[in-house]
C-alpha cells in the first residue's frame, strides 16, 4: 500500500467494556489499533469471542449505549466518530461507511419488500425518489448479480435464497458507494459455491471502486485469498499483524501457527496430521496477568506471566511492518535484521 495515501479508517487504542450490574466488567476489546487505506482489504481474524465483531460494531457506532463503555479513537477520513452524536452517525452510516452482517435473514426486515429496503437507503442519503430510485435499485441488484432484479424488488426476504439475500444486503451497502465497507463473516452462513461468488463480488468492489474493506472472519482460507493485511486477534487484543503472504509463509505467534496447523487443507491428503491447539478459548488469563494465550501455548515460558517478568506482553512493531505480541515467537525476526542463529526459539 502506498504510504502516502491517507487511511480511510483509523482505529486507535479501541477499548470496549461491557458492564452488567452485579457482575465484573468484561473487556471485550482491549486496545485494538489498525487502519485501512482506500482499495485495501484488511482482515480481522480470530475465533469466537476474540472481540473481532465487537470491534466492528464499535467502529460503526452500533453498540448500545447502556452498559457498554467505548474508549479510544475511531476516525473516518480523519473525522472522530466516537462521541459523535446519533444524527451525525446516521448520516455517515449507509453513506460513507456500510456494513454487511453474517446472517442476512436477520439483518433484513422480514415485513418489507427488498425493493423498499434498497430504495430507503437511496432516499435517505441520495434524495432519490420514485422511478429514479427504483431504476437505481434495479441497477444495484443487477450489479451484485441478482437475476431478474425488477421482479426481486417486489419480493420479501424470505422469498430469496441465502446467497441472494446476502447479495441484496451488499447491494444496500453499495448504494451510496461507501468509502468503507465492514463485512462481518459475510460468507459463513453460505455454501462454498455461493461463498466463492460473494468473495469475487467483494474483490471486484475493492479493485473497481477503491472501497476500503474490513473483512472479519474466522476462515483462514478466505483471508488467504482476499486480504492484503491481516490482524490476528486473541482475547480482545491483536497478537500478530502481517502482510498476507508473509503471515501464511512465516507465522510467528504460536497462536497463528497453531491455527494454521489445525485446519485441514483441501490440498493435503488423508493422514496429514492435524495439530490442534490445547484447551479452548475459555482457558485464558487476563492480559494484566500475562499473555492470555500462555495457558494453551506450547512455547510459553515463565516470563510470559507478568508476575515473573514484571511487565505486560506488548505489541512490538518490527522492521517490515510486522507486529507481534509474543516473547517466544515460532521463528526469529526477519533475517535481514538479525541473522538466523541456530538454536533460536522454534
Amino acid at each position: 500500500m502506498n504510504p502516502l495515501t491517507t487511511p480511510v479508517l483509523e482505529v486507535e487504542d479501541l477499548r470496549v467494556r461491557f458492564q452488567r450490574r452485579g457482575e465484573p466488567a468484561t473487556l471485550a476489546v482491549d486496545g485494538v489499533s489498525f487502519s485501512v487505506a482506500p482499495g485495501e482489504t484488511v482482515g480481522l481474524v480470530g475465533e469466537s469471542g476474540c472481540g473481532k465483531s465487537v470491534t466492528s460494531l464499535a467502529t460503526m457506532g452500533l453498540l448500545p449505549s447502556r452498559g457498554v463503555q467505548v474508549d479510544g479513537s475511531v476516525r473516518l477520513d480523519g473525522r472522530e466518530l466516537l462521541g459523535a452524536g446519533d444524527r451525525t452517525l446516521r448520516k455517515l452510516r449507509g453513506k460513507d461507511m456500510a456494513m454487511v452482517f453474517q446472517d442476512p435473514l436477520s439483518s433484513l426486515n422480514p415485513t418489507v419488500t427488498v425493493g423498499l429496503q434498497v430504495t430507503e437507503v437511496l432516499a435517505q442519503h441520495r434524495g432519490l425518489k420514485g422511478e429514479a430510485a427504483k431504476a437505481e435499485a434495479v441497477d444495484l441488484l443487477d450489479r451484485v448479480g441478482i437475476p431478474d432484479p425488477r421482479r426481486r424488488l417486489g419480493e420479501y426476504p424470505h422469498q430469496l435464497s441465502g446467497g441472494m439475500r446476502q447479495r441484496a444486503l451488499i447491494a444496500m451497502a453499495l448504494a451510496c458507494s461507501p468509502r468503507l465497507l465492514i463485512a462481518d463473516e459475510p460468507t459463513t452462513a453460505l455454501d462454498v459455491t455461493i461463498q466463492a461468488q460473494i468473495l469475487e463480488l467483494l474483490r471486484d468492489l475493492v479493485q473497481g471502486s477503491g472501497t476500503a474493506l474490513v473483512m472479519i472472519t474466522h476462515d483462514l482460507g478466505v483471508v488467504a485469498g482476499l486480504c492484503d493485511r491481516v490482524h490476528v486477534m486473541y482475547a480482545g487484543r491483536i497478537i500478530e499483524t502481517a502482510e498476507r503472504r508473509d503471515l501464511f509463509a512465516r507465522p510467528r505467534h504460536p497462536y497463528t501457527g497453531g491455527l494454521l496447523n489445525s485446519v485441514p487443507r483441501l490440498d493435503s491428503g488423508r493422514g496429514t496430521p492435524l495439530t490442534p491447539i490445547r484447551g479452548s478459548a475459555r482457558d485464558t488469563i487476563p492480559w494484566a496477568q500475562g499473555c492470555a494465550f500462555a495457558p494453551r501455548c506450547d512455547s510459553a515460558e515463565d516470563d510470559c506471566l507478568v508476575e515473573v517478568s514484571g511487565s505486560e506482553v506488548d505489541l512490538v512493531t518490527e522492521p517490515g511492518g510486522r507486529e507481534l505480541r509474543c516473547r517466544h515467537p515460532l521463528t526469529p525476526a526477519v533475517p535481514t535484521t538479525s541473522p538466523l542463529t541456530p538454536g533460536a526459539t522454534s
Partner: peptide
C-alpha cells in the same frame, strides 16, 4: 470440480494461482 475450486485454501500462494470455476445461480 466447481465445488473444489470454490474451497478457499489457507495459503496465499495456492489462492493466487488457482483456477476458480464460479457457478452461476443457486441450487
Amino acid at each position: 470440480r466447481s465445488l473444489m475450486s470454490a474451497v478457499p485454501v489457507p495459503d496465499p500462494v495456492v489462492e493466487d494461482a488457482r483456477e476458480r470455476i464460479l457457478l452461476s445461480g443457486d441450487l
